[in-house]
Each structure stands twice: as C-alpha cells, then as structure tokens.
C-alpha cells in the first residue's frame, strides 16, 4: 500500500469502489439554481450540478466565461448571489468564515498562478495546510517526503517558489492540495502555463488521485488534456456557455 501525504492508496481505492457502487447517497459538491453577479452584471445563472464522490469532471468554456468563478463558488471563496451551494452536504451560505476554512481543508485547490509563500521553501509550502490546521507535521515528515517524491520534487524541496519552473510550481501546488488527503481536488487551468509534456505528467497525477477515490474537477480550455484524460479514466465534461452550465458534446 502506497501513502501519498495522508492518502493511503489501497484504502482509498476500496473507498472509491464503494462510492462508485453507491452513488447518490452523499455528494461532494452540489449547486442548486446558483447565480452569481458581479459589478451589476450576471456572470453565472441557473447553475445546477451534483458532483458525486470519486468522479472526474472537466469544466470548459471560453476565457472569461466564469470557470474560475464557478470553482470559487465550489470551495466557498465566493458566495452565490442566489441559489444554494452545498459542500459535503452543508450549505455554504449559512457558514461563518472559520467554518468555510475548516471545510476548505477537505478541498485541495490548484490555481493556474499557483500562489505560494515565496519566503518559505517548497517543503514548507507543501506542508502549509498541516500547519494552519494545527496538525503536527513531525509525524508527517515521511509522508511529506513521499509526497514530494510522487510529484518529482524531492531535489527541489529546499528551493524557494520563485526558483521553480512553471511545471514544478504546478506539481508543488498539487502536492500542497493533496497533503491533507482532501476528498475533492479543484484545479483551475492547471496546465495553462506549462508545456505539453509537463501537462501530461500533471494529468497522470490527477488520474492517479482519481483512481485513489478522489473527486477531481478541472477547469481548462485545453481540449488535448481532456481527450488524454478520457483515454485513461471515466470523465464528465461540462461547458459554461452564455452564463449557463451545459454538458459538453460527444466530440470531446
């Protein structure tokens, strides 16, 4: 059994199988008639979606269509103007900021611009979720090293984030996103700044996580990435068009 961060592969695979067999009982993310307005204009409207545990979703759409906003609604960084966003069956609207923070520990987020604390080495940045949640990182040293090895950053553990290449930053962000063994991983244009080869490596990691039972939701306009994923794992492709969420056609 392999351990990645706090992810125990064997256990999670069993969990994954069970969830796949018993879908409908619990949902990871649920959006019900959600609308979001900004600056007087409606950016998203009438969005309804249920994300089941262990599923792999892609979210596509032209630039500025609201993909990032959609993801932020999913992890509680933004509040819907109307409708309901439920994270692990809890309505985000009724939660305080601290409650959202605790819920967010169950959601790993990878941004296109990979925000890091530039004055801390990669190792500490990856372990940051443990530190902020008050968990003793001492016992997780082995897991941390294994996690860094999994994303191929062992040799860069002591480097500062500005010293990393685009691909290394994305992998470090992914490692940070999964160190708390979150149930869902949201990635916003994770391959936007990296070359094709590196995006394939990143996809391999995401597919591996999904096989461990993690729910994956990736916002991207990289159709090649979506096709490559579909060849490896069952995915659902969604598209934001004209402020609404649609299921993408079979051409994807």
């Amino acid at each position: 059994m392999c351990c990645l961060g706090r992810i125990e592969t064997g256990t999670m695979l069993r969990h994954n199988s069970a969830e796949r067999g018993g879908r409908g009982k619990t949902t990871v993310i649920e959006l019900e008639n959600v609308a979001y307005s900004y600056g007087g204009g409606e950016l998203l409207t009438d969005i309804t979606l249920t994300v089941q545990p262990g599923s792999f979703h892609f979210l596509t759409g032209p630039s500025g269509s609201g993909k990032t906003t959609f993801l932020k609604l999913c992890y509680g960084a933004l509040q819907a103007t109307s409708g309901h966003v439920r994270l692990f069956n809890r309505d985000v609207r009724g939660l305080g900021r601290d409650d959202v923070a605790v819920l967010r520990r169950k959601v790993g987020v990878v941004h296109q611009d990979c925000q890091f604390l530039d004055h801390l080495p990669v190792e500490e940045n990856v372990a940051l979720p443990l530190a902020v949640s008050g968990q003793d990182a001492g016992g997780d040293d082995a897991n941390l090293k294994e996690l860094l090895a999994w994303v191929g950053l062992t040799a860069r553990a002591d480097a500062l984030p500005p010293e990393l290449s685009g691909g290394e930053r994305q992998r470090a962000a992914l490692a940070r996103a999964v160190i708390m063994s979150p149930e869902v991983i949201l990635a916003d244009e994770p391959t936007g700044n990296i070359d094709w080869e590196m995006s394939q490596r990143l996809l391999t990691l995401l597919v591996e996580l999904n096989r461990m039972g993690k729910t994956i939701l990736v916002a991207t306009h990289d159709l090649g990435l979506i096709r490559a994923a579909k060849a490896q794992v069952q995915t659902r492709v969604l598209r934001i068009s004209n402020r609404r969420l649609q299921t993408a056609g079979a051409d994807l």
Partner: peptide, 8 residues
C-alpha cells in the same frame, strides 16, 4: 494563500 489552504 493561507485562506486557500484552510487557515482560520
């Protein structure tokens, strides 16, 4: 960044 990783 701290909020992103779940800091209260």
């Amino acid at each position: 960044v701290l909020r992103l990783v779940g800091a209260k």
